[in-house]
């Protein structure tokens, strides 16, 4: 277990943990898993241990107090931390370790998309936001592009609101609409997995619940991993929940288990609202 002797906290001895393997519980295959994942910012180890397995077509939520490493972990999954942090260990995407330099990180990110905390539409029209990446990848057929725009916006449940103003600037949309547009933008490139980093933290309650509905529909087509601050949100939408604390995944189980009978004391304290 001792990976980095310079980190004293690893020496504390026994740590209460409970990480389940979803493949033993559900029929869904595992699409993404990490093995021996460690993340370092300079000399600081941000993630000590966080080995989880994510089942296909399920929503897995990562919860935990701020600074617990849940976002760092998520951003490592599609290597958004490249150049920012050093990530060691294996990230197995459908059995292929993508945490290797010879992997084409752009193709990998096309398959493992990400939506961020703050909506970040490009300062282009709504239509161009959706088609931008496709055009860059060489899709020029207008009909095909139109189709992708419609299906992506429909999947992201924003089509009805924007279908008449596709040529208008995306920045003119409300925050909640912008975030759903970002989801539409992410699914336009036909990813396999969607990573969402606190996507609702900048939204009002109405927009948030709309977003949650959207996610529940999206899981039929995509595997979703979502970091959230909001425990109710995790409870409402996720199938699996991982609890992170101080750079470790301490507990990972079916969401109902985590919220009703967690096995780890710290998880219990956290979901009960005792700290965090």
């Amino acid at each position: 277990m001792l990976i980095n002797p310079s980190s004293p906290r690893l020496d504390d001895g026994w740590l209460e943990r409970n990480i389940v393997d979803p493949s033993l519980k559900s029929q869904q295959p595992i699409v993404l898993e990490t093995q021996q994942l460690h993340v370092y910012y300079g000399d600081n180890e941000a993630i000590h241990e966080g080995d989880l397995k994510f089942p296909e077509h399920q929503i897995s939520a990562l919860i935990g107090p701020s600074g617990s490493g849940k976002s760092t972990y998520l951003r490592s999954l599609n290597r958004m931390n490249d150049g920012i942090a050093r990530v060691s260990g294996e990230i197995l995407y459908r059995g292929v370790d993508v945490n290797r330099p010879e992997i084409d990180v752009y193709e990998m990110r096309r398959r493992i998309g990400m939506v961020f905390q703050r909506p970040n539409p490009f300062s282009k029209s709504i239509y161009d936001n959706i088609t931008f990446a496709l055009k860059r990848r060489g899709v020029t057929d207008k009909k095909e592009l139109d189709e992708v725009v419609e299906t992506s916006l429909k999947q992201a449940a924003i089509w009805d609101e924007v279908k008449d103003k596709l040529t208008k600037s995306a920045l003119a949309l409300s925050g909640g609409q912008q975030q759903r547009l970002c989801i539409a933008r992410a699914i336009a490139v036909k990813p396999d997995i969607l990573l969402l980093d606190e996507p609702a933290s900048a939204l009002d309650p109405v927009s948030t619940s709309k977003l949650e509905e959207t996610l529940l529909k999206l899981k039929e087509d995509y595997t979703i991993i979502i970091v959230t601050h909001n425990m109710q949100q995790a409870a409402r939408i996720s199938d699996y929940t991982a609890f992170f604390n101080m750079g470790r995944a301490l507990e990972y189980d079916e969401t109902s288990q985590i919220f009703t009978s967690p096995k780890v004391q710290l998880t219990n304290d956290y979901v009960a609202g005792d700290f965090g």
Binding site: N78, Y106, R109, R110, R111, F116, F122, F132, A133
Partner: peptide
């Protein structure tokens, strides 16, 4: 803002394409 860069990278675009076109 850096969010714009991340937006491009997360779509599987290279940094260069993101910078040049976004």
């Amino acid at each position: 803002p850096d969010e714009q860069r991340e937006g491009g990278l997360a779509l599987g675009l290279s940094k260069w394409e993101t910078v040049l076109h976004i």
